[in-house]
Computed example of a mutant assay.
Amino acid sequence: MQRPIRPNATFRLLLVGLLTGALGLLFVQLTSTTPVTTGGRSSEKVNLALRRTAHHLLRAAGDSTSTIAAVEQSNAQTYRLRLDHAFDYDRLPGLLQASFRVHQITDPYDVAVLNCATGALQLGYSVTDLTDNQTVPCRGRLAQAGCYVLRVTFATPPAATPQRTNAWPLLALVGALVGLLVIGWRQQTRLPPAAPLAGKTTDNPNRLQFGQSYLDVMGQTLISGTHQHSLTYRETKLLRMLVGHANEVLDRDHILKQVWEDEGITVSHRSVDVFISRLRKLLQDDPTVKITAVHGVGYRLEVS
Score class of each variant (00 low, 15 high):
15 L>Q: 15
16 V>M: 01
16 V>I: 09
17 G>T: 12
18 L>E: 10
22 A>D: 14
25 L>S: 13
25 L>V: 13
28 V>E: 09
30 L>C: 14
31 T>C: 04
34 T>Y: 08
34 T>A: 03
36 V>C: 07
36 V>T: 10
36 V>K: 05
38 T>D: 08
40 G>L: 08
48 L>D: 11
51 R>I: 09
51 R>E: 10
59 R>A: 13
60 A>D: 09
60 A>R: 03
61 A>V: 03
62 G>V: 07
64 S>I: 14
67 T>S: 12
67 T>F: 11
68 I>K: 09
71 V>Y: 09
76 A>M: 11
79 Y>L: 03
81 L>G: 07
83 L>N: 02
88 D>I: 00
90 D>A: 00
91 R>F: 01
91 R>Y: 02
97 Q>H: 02
109 Y>K: 08
110 D>F: 06
111 V>K: 03
111 V>I: 09
113 V>Y: 00
115 N>A: 06
119 G>Q: 13
121 L>N: 04
125 Y>C: 01
128 T>S: 09
131 T>G: 00
133 N>W: 01
133 N>C: 01
134 Q>G: 05
136 V>S: 04
139 R>S: 12
143 A>G: 08
143 A>M: 07
144 Q>T: 13
144 Q>P: 01
145 A>F: 04
147 C>L: 00
148 Y>G: 01
148 Y>R: 06
149 V>H: 06
154 F>S: 08
155 A>Q: 04
157 P>N: 10
158 P>K: 09
160 A>K: 12
160 A>W: 01
161 T>C: 02
166 N>R: 10
169 P>H: 06
170 L>A: 03
171 L>R: 05
172 A>S: 04
173 L>K: 01
178 V>L: 05
178 V>W: 07
181 L>C: 01
181 L>W: 05
186 R>W: 11
187 Q>Y: 11
188 Q>N: 10
190 R>V: 10
191 L>E: 10
196 P>W: 02
197 L>N: 01
200 K>E: 13
201 T>D: 05
201 T>V: 10
204 N>R: 12
206 N>P: 00
206 N>S: 04
207 R>A: 14
209 Q>V: 13
213 S>H: 06
213 S>V: 14
220 Q>N: 13
221 T>R: 12
229 H>Q: 12
236 T>R: 05
238 L>I: 12
240 R>I: 12
242 L>N: 08
246 A>R: 13
246 A>M: 14
247 N>S: 09
248 E>D: 10
248 E>K: 09
250 L>Q: 09
251 D>I: 12
254 H>G: 00
254 H>K: 13
254 H>T: 15
269 H>T: 15
270 R>E: 13
271 S>D: 05
278 R>F: 07
279 L>I: 15
280 R>L: 07
287 P>E: 08
287 P>S: 06
289 V>N: 04
290 K>Y: 02
291 I>S: 05
296 G>P: 03
302 E>C: 07
303 V>Q: 05
